[in-house]
Simulated scan of single mutants.
Amino acid sequence: MENVKEGFIPVTGGNVWYRISGNGPGIPLLILHGGPGSSSIDSDPLRQLGTDRPVIHYDQLGSGKSDRPTDTRLWTVERFVEELGQVVRALGLEEFHLLGHSWGTMLAASYLAGKPAGVRSVIFSSPALSARRWEQDQRKYLREFPQEIQETIERSEREGTTDSETYAETVRAYYERHFCRVTPWPQELEDEMAGMNQQVYNFMWGASEFTVTGTLKDFDATGWLPEISIPALFTCGRFDEATSEATEYYAGLVPASEFHVFEHSSHMPGIEEPDTYAEVIREWLNGQDLKPGA
Rank of each mutant, 00 (worst) to 15 (best):
G14N: 08
W205S: 13
M196A: 13
T162M: 13
V171H: 01
V77L: 15
R47N: 12
G14L: 07
T76C: 10
A221D: 11
S164M: 09
V4C: 12
S43W: 01
I41Y: 12
T235W: 03
G206M: 11
L30M: 12
Q147F: 04
T105F: 10
L107W: 01
T211L: 14
T276E: 15
G100C: 01
I153P: 02
F259N: 04
V16M: 03
Y141H: 15
P226K: 10
G270T: 00
N286Y: 00
P54T: 08
Y18K: 07
M193D: 09
L253Q: 11
R133S: 13
P292Y: 09
F234L: 10
A168K: 12
R139S: 06
V4P: 00
F8R: 13
V261E: 04
N286W: 01
D52W: 06
W224V: 04
Q60T: 04
T12N: 10
G22N: 05
A117M: 06
G64S: 05
C236E: 11
I281V: 15
M1S: 14
P269K: 07
T247V: 11
E209I: 00
H264C: 06
L107R: 06
Y201S: 12
V88N: 10
T243C: 03
M1P: 12
E283M: 03
S39F: 00
D71E: 13
T161S: 13
R158T: 11
Q147G: 07
V280C: 09
L189R: 09
T215D: 13
T105C: 11
A242K: 05
P226Y: 08
T72H: 04
E192Y: 02
H178I: 05
P226G: 11
F145L: 13
L285A: 10
P274M: 06
M268H: 12
D289C: 09
E148D: 13
L49D: 12
L93N: 08
L233F: 11
V212T: 09
D59H: 09
S126K: 09
D71K: 05
G14E: 05
S156I: 00
I281Y: 08
F80M: 12
V87F: 07
W17P: 08
E209M: 06
W103Y: 15
E176L: 03
G62Y: 00
E248F: 03
D275W: 04
Y18F: 15
G50D: 08
S125L: 06
I9D: 05
P28I: 03
